[in-house]
Design a protein around this nucleic acid. Structure first.
Length: 419
RNA sequence: GUGAGUGUAGCUCAGGUGGUAGAGCCCCGGGUUGUGGCCCCGGUUGUCGUGGGUUCGAGUCCCAUCACUCACCCCA
């Protein structure tokens, strides 16, 4: 038997209401703030990701779905969507208009990883990107929108952590300061942290080994090593968050993995997701467009893990499934043919009608089926109805029913529904 | 890539110390020659993940393998 590939899954009709709710709420909220949707391709040139995300990151070094097409071009299934959106902005010169570009996207991403709770090889992100301003008010307003979005979905226990990871001016100096602090402790660090020391010492802050956490708690925080410009940007952002009464925690140990982040960096965690407790992450990426060969256009954005968001939804958020208004119970081939005609006309009045051609099935079984589907009315078309050109209308709520001429079905149905 | 746990009916799961498979739900038919919910009666459903080994005999023990789940790494 052929089954869905590891790390991929089918989202079945029984749970689709939660996905549709999340996506509809995202569109409605983002458009309130002037964002417009963009849809970019699922695969891109491999180079787009390796250059922007960083060759040394886990994503690029071991998690990309990369393949050669028939002409030998190296292509990659997108592992994230900020770089593709930036590519599209440059390609279509979208930054040349007046004002800012605010874009959002919803779609699948791909990373070759071992699946676990809240993690899959094909997963979905809802993300936004703002291009064209490095003003901290962009950061603040977008974060305010984000929190409003989560609130509108009734997400409980969401905690926003913000930090500044500096810029190419101050980050190298901080890295050296951190290394200077860590070198004397090298022998007491865990194996992973010793490796991080060489690759990306900032990641030691994420270590879950208690002894290492203790070591890191005394490490110099990045916020004290920021250059004047970055320090000013961060201070203004924090002040604006205060003014907006956005609950947040300043977390100097928060480091994000992708190379293109500058200055503002943040994430929202939520309980109940197992060890993948990050619901979303994002930050500022002022150098990205230029790195891709475009002009010096600053950017800010975030991406929400849609699977994790759906997992975090309150149980009650599952919107009611669309029960049919009418179930057609037809007996015999003639009955089925008549039901088709009646159903066609009633659907034009906006009625949701379910017709399952099973002429040999007992009326009892068809009634049971109508009940299970939650149909408000059943239209019965059996042998005697066919003979006299009528239809039996049954209101399921109280069992009242009557037989009317076929032409009168629509009007009588309306009367019975209103009664 | 590393570690641990789990694989029995469509679903959720029982099957001490080896004797050749069960329940509930679901589904179908009937009780009501054409009428739902509750009830009653009857019925269908399995390569016991796969391959090999031990044994007279393996769902049960051993080995291998695959899949799933959770955790590590890392991230959404």
């Amino acid at each position: 038997m052929i089954e869905a590939q590891k790390g991929t899954r089918d989202i079945l009709p029984g749970e689709i209401a939660r996905w549709q709710l999340v996506e509809a709420q995202a569109r409605a909220t983002f458009e309130l703030y002037g964002f417009r949707e963009i849809r970019t391709p699922i695969f891109e040139s491999t180079e787009l990701f390796s250059r922007t995300i960083g060759e040394a990151t886990d994503i690029v070094s071991k998690e990309m779905y990369t393949f050669l097409d028939r002409k030998g071009r190296s292509l990659t299934l997108r592992p994230e969507n900020t770089a593709p959106v930036a590519r599209a902005v440059i390609e279509h010169q979208m930054h040349r208009g007046a004002g800012l570009q605010r874009l959002y996207y919803i779609g699948p991403m791909f990373r070759y990883e071992r699946p676990q709770k809240g993690r899959a090889r094909q997963f979905h992100q809802i993300g936004v990107e703002v291009f064209g301003s490095e003003h901290p008010a962009v950061d603040a307003e977008t974060l305010e929108m984000l929190m409003a979005f989560l609130e509108s979905l009734g997400i409980a226990g969401a905690e926003l952590a913000v930090n500044s990871v500096g810029c190419p001016v101050c980050r190298p100096a901080y890295r050296e300061a951190l290394l200077a602090y860590l070198r004397p402790h090298r022998d007491s660090l865990c194996e992973d942290c010793r490796r991080r020391l060489a690759e990306n010492p900032l990641r030691c802050f994420d270590c879950k080994v208690p002894a290492d956490q203790e070591t890191m708690s005394a490490a110099p925080p990045i916020t004290e090593s920021l250059c004047a410009a970055c320090r000013d940007h961060f201070a203004r952002l924090v002040a604006l968050l205060e003014a907006l009464a956005i609950r947040h925690r300043i977390e100097p140990r928060l480091v994000r993995g992708l190379d293109y982040y500058r200055r503002t960096s943040f994430e929202v965690t939520v309980p109940g997701l197992g060890s993948q407790n990050a619901l979303l992450g994002g930050g500022r990426y002022d150098g990205l467009i230029r790195d891709l060969g475009g002009p010096d256009v600053p950017g800010f954005g975030f991406a929400v893990g849609e699977e994790r968001l759906v997992l975090s939804l309150p149980a009650a958020a599952a919107a009611a499934e669309g029960a049919p208004d009418i179930y057609m119970a037809a007996i015999g081939e003639e009955g089925v043919a008549r039901a088709l005609v009646v159903g066609r006309w009633l659907r034009r009045t906006g009625k949701r009608i379910v017709l399952e051609p099973q002429p040999d099935k007992s009326l009892r079984a068809q009634m049971r089926r109508a009940h299970d589907l939650g149909a408000a009315f059943v239209l019965i078309i059996g042998e005697s109805e066919v003979r006299e050109g009528s239809v039996t209308i049954r209101r399921m709520a109280d069992g009242t029913q009557e037989r009317v001429a076929a032409q009168r079905v629509e009007g009588r149905l309306r009367e019975m529904a209103g009664a």
